[in-house]
Design a protein around this nucleic acid. Structure first.
Lengths: 218, 218
DNA sequence: TTACTTACGTTAGAGCTTCTAACAAGAGCT
DNA sequence: AGCTCTTGTTAGAAGCTCTAACGTAAGTAA
């Protein structure tokens, strides 16, 4: 009874492994349940015992990627101390993860796959990666406009996320870190820097240093 | 001889119009040459007289989107004066274009479509949109490290692009504007802000103001 | 006006895809 | 030993891209 389940998991993993290869080679549309089955030595319909349909397989890949990225980001900040150091480590880890497997990053942040509806489990992963980002936040010194809509929304989000004593301003900074890092990474892995001849890694590093400098100022 | 060409162009346009509808509804993989033909009242293979294959149709959509976005950005800056004003106008125009038709923005900056190789004509469009961004750049005051790799790459890019008297530092600023605006827009239209309850427009505006403030400082 | 060429539509079909239905065989439990 | 659940098979429907072969209509030239 236990072995069955283990075999089952093994089959699912192998299918996902091959799916990732297809994804890297030909994008999301290059993933074919039939072709995966053939490469595994079974007929096409056999795989439908393991995945309800093609979308379910894709959803699994997305969920795995989400967790993997969250692990990476979390690992980068928890092993270090000091806001600036954590910031640099987080940024580097995030970019390296994305550059090493752009197709997986794009599965999360590229064009949404049509049939996908985020399951509950990815919420946990999203929360973990956001927590990692928020660990790099410095102290809050200046006062903010407490009556702005953005302030209230950030405040509500902070309560919902149980971020403890982080102020809305700090949460805003976290969001900004997220959007800025993503901005460079996204353009890099979609090859938009290619025609410029400018090395995206250098642009990324400069952006990280700007964030660090800004973070130390307040 | 002239009427034929006009009819031809008309047919191509209608096909592309329907393709855009499919794109909006079901993403890039939802575009079907067969289905388009059927909706136009002809059989599937007939459309292959107008597009070499499905990829050629997609490439056409990408090229159109590129030109359309470039027009929008160019229009935003040329009708206004003053760096800060141009900056705000450019940012707003870009975001509104993207939010109004996310699928088209994602066609350009989302997951790359597998068979696509950028034709020469998109280079012109890319150049135009970059020029629009560079119009918002302020004056260059502080000295920069002239021996850094990034400085040299930006310098070479500036010459290749014929940007006149813009310094590498100003070009770097242009790139930063580009990555930061894209960062927020990209995450907004892939619905990544949804779970936070934070309005991406407000985050975007704050980011624009940060850019303006930074631009005015130097 | 007649003849030729080019453009554009058709059907047939190969080969791929997802996914369902019906059936056969084996693994584990009672 | 018998029953059930799991997992494989084949057959097939319905869709896709794209090629080949063929007919017809429209524009061009003699």
């Amino acid at each position: 009874m236990d072995r069955r389940q283990r075999y089952r998991e093994q089959t699912r993993d192998e299918a996902k492994r091959i799916a990732l290869e297809q994804l890297a080679e030909a994008g999301p549309s290059g993933i074919s349940v039939n072709a995966i089955a053939k490469r595994m030595g079974v007929t096409g319909p056999a795989l439908y015992r393991y995945f309800a349909n093609r979308d379910a397989l894709l959803t699994d890949l997305i969920e795995d990627a989400y967790n993997d990225l969250a692990d990476t980001m979390q690992g980068a900040v928890t092993q270090r101390a000091g806001h600036a150091t954590q910031m640099r480590a987080l940024a580097t880890a995030m970019r390296e993860w994305a550059v090493a497997q752009p197709h997986r990053y794009l599965l999360l942040f590229g064009t949404p796959v049509p049939g996908y509806q985020a399951p509950m489990e990815t919420l946990a992963a999203a929360h973990r990666s956001m927590t990692a980002v928020l660990a790099t936040v410095g102290e809050d010194t200046e006062p903010a406009n407490r009556r702005s809509t953005l302030y209230r929304q950030l405040s509500a989000w902070g309560e919902k996320m149980q971020t403890g004593d982080l102020t809305p301003k700090q949460l805003h900074w976290g969001v900004t870190v997220w959007t800025r890092l993503h901005g460079v990474i996204s353009l890099e892995i979609t090859n938009q820097f290619e025609m410029t001849g400018v090395d995206p890694e250098l642009v990324f590093k400069a952006e990280v240093e700007a964030l660090v400098a800004w973070g130390e100022r307040g």
